[in-house]
């Protein structure tokens, strides 16, 4: 009991320290407007990619339509905050987005999650495209032009806090009764069923939770960038999120953080290269995959608990 408290306190300390560090760097001027934008985009990508990692890495379901749920979050929040431009409106927008994305994921997930592997990937990609095309044709979403002048209700600290909260939700979920059942589905569905796991139910739980969290990423995107249109949420965006997950290591939340940072920074450096940027980016992607196909960290996770038990074990040996 006490031990658990200690580990949780250390995690909290790390989170606060990170916040203070960014705050200080911002004060001193090391982080300028440009760097801040990069950081915010990295944060949003972390939220999107960790939620996709929950679906791909932990429940083992290959979804290629994450941008669709991001879009639902972005549009919900944009519409709500445009009507109620306040912090309360932002929170309401977040909630509406999560509910909408969750319901859509539920409706879509119940039939499609029966499919496996690449078929599910294609079906979810199709769903995301359908969502995008509908947004492209509705009046309330202002069609292809999209929504603009969305109130800026998110700044880097909002993003930071939400990154911490969503990561906490995902990690705590994974290490609980439900999360373990979800992982058993990834490992072996037939064996899981044989010990009483309703595999469909747990796939859907992971899928809906992933979608709801992705909608938070979308809401932050809308309220930070302040303009959105359907092309922001196409297949390319789904693929970008997937790349972060695979690059970091499928099933490693730590890896997702590392990959989101690396790609964000790579993107920032390559800004100066113009068109060459995407060429170099794609080359880097191919090379990393060819030489490190399991992703940068594989399934490795950073763990405060292990850090301590390791030290202890060493201490005992001495």
């Amino acid at each position: 009991m006490k031990k658990n408290l200690k580990y949780n306190a250390i995690w909290l300390a790390i989170a606060i320290l990170g916040y203070v560090l960014i705050y200080a760097l911002e004060m001193v001027g090391v982080i300028d407007q440009f760097a801040e934008t990069t950081l915010v985009l990295i944060g949003i990508n972390i939220i999107l990619a960790t939620s996709l990692n929950l679906v791909i890495g932990f429940s083992g379901q290959f979804s290629l339509g994450h941008a669709g749920f991001m879009a639902l979050g972005a549009y919900s929040s944009a519409l709500v905050t445009s009507a109620i431009p306040s912090v309360g409106g932002f929170l309401l927008g977040l909630l509406v987005g999560m509910i909408v994305a969750g319901i859509v994921a539920l409706v879509v997930g119940i039939p499609t999650l029966r499919l496996n592997g690449d078929y599910l990937a294609i079906a979810t990609m199709g769903v995301a495209e359908i969502i995008r095309i509908i947004l492209n044709n509705l009046k309330i979403t202002n069609g292809p032009a999209g929504l603009y002048n969305i109130p800026m209700l998110a700044n880097w600290s909002t993003v930071y806090v939400l990154v911490v909260i969503t990561t906490l939700i995902i990690v705590n979920f994974v290490h609980s009764r439900n999360g373990r059942a979800v992982m058993s589905v990834r490992e072996d569905e037939i064996a899981a069923e044989s010990i009483g796991i309703n595999t469909t139910k747990y796939k859907i739980i992971a899928f809906v939770l992933g979608a709801a969290i992705a909608s938070i990423g979308g809401a932050l995107h809308a309220n930070y960038i302040q303009t959105i249109n359907p092309t922001d949420f196409g297949i390319m965006e789904s693929i970008n999120i997937l790349i972060i997950v695979v690059l970091g290591g499928i099933g490693s939340i730590t890896g997702t953080f590392v990959a989101a940072f690396l790609l964000g920074i790579l993107d920032m450096i390559l800004q100066n290269f113009g068109t060459l940027r995407m060429v170099l980016y794609s080359l880097a992607l191919i090379l990393i995959m060819v030489f490190k196909p399991s992703g940068l960290l594989g399934t490795w996770e950073f763990s405060v608990r292990r850090l301590f038990t390791h030290k202890k074990a060493k201490g005992d040996a001495e």
């Binding site: 791909i56 290959f62 693929i239 997937l242 790349i243 695979v246 690059l247 499928i250 794609s282 080359l283 992607l285 191919i286 995959m289 060819v290 196909p293 399991s294 992703g295």
Partner: peptide
């Protein structure tokens, strides 16, 4: 999935 990402690359 690694091969898939390479194909995307």
């Amino acid at each position: 999935i690694a091969a898939l990402i390479t194909a995307i690359g």
